[in-house]
Amino acid sequence: SPEEIKAKALDLLNKKLHRANKFGQDQADIDSLQRQINRVEKFGVDLNSKLAEELGLV
C-alpha cells in the first residue's frame, strides 16, 4: 500500500541521514537527504525514482 511504501522510504532515508551526520558527509548531501524526506512526507514515493529502485519496488 502507499502508506507502507512511504513508511519504508522514510525509514531508509532517515537511516541515510543519520549515517551522513555520524560520518560527517558534505552539508550538501545532508541537505539533499532532508529534501528527499520532506518530498516523501508530502507526496509519497514516485515509482519511477531511484528511491523506488532502492526499495525494490521497480
Rank of each mutant, 00 (worst) to 15 (best):
S1G: 12
K6E: 02
Q34F: 04
D29P: 03
Q27A: 12
I37N: 00
D31I: 12
V40C: 02
N14E: 09
V40Q: 00
V45L: 10
K22D: 09
R19T: 12
V45S: 01
D26G: 11
E3R: 07
E53C: 12
A9Y: 05
L51F: 07
V45A: 02
F43V: 06
N38R: 14
A20C: 05
R19H: 15
E41I: 13
H18D: 15
L17Q: 02
D46Q: 07
D26T: 11
K15E: 13
L17R: 02
A20W: 08
K42H: 11
D46T: 05
G44V: 00
L47V: 09
N48D: 10
F23Q: 12
S32V: 09
G24K: 05
V45W: 01
A9C: 05
S49Q: 03
I30M: 05
L10H: 01
K16V: 04
L55W: 02
E3G: 07
S1I: 08
R19C: 15
S49D: 07
S32H: 12
K8Y: 04
L10Y: 00
E4T: 11
Q25K: 12
L51W: 06
L51D: 03
L47I: 11
A20E: 04
F23S: 13
D29G: 09
L17P: 01
L55S: 01
P2H: 12
E54S: 06
Q34R: 13
L13I: 02
V45M: 04
R35S: 11
L10E: 02
F43N: 06
N48A: 10
Q25V: 13
R39Q: 15
V58C: 11
G24D: 07
K15V: 07
D29A: 15
E3P: 06
E41Q: 10
A9E: 01
E3Q: 10
D26K: 09
L13V: 00
P2I: 10
A7I: 12
H18L: 12
F43G: 05
S49Y: 02
Q25R: 10
N48R: 09
D26S: 14
R35H: 10
N21W: 05
F23G: 11
I30S: 03
Q34I: 15
L17S: 01
E53Q: 13
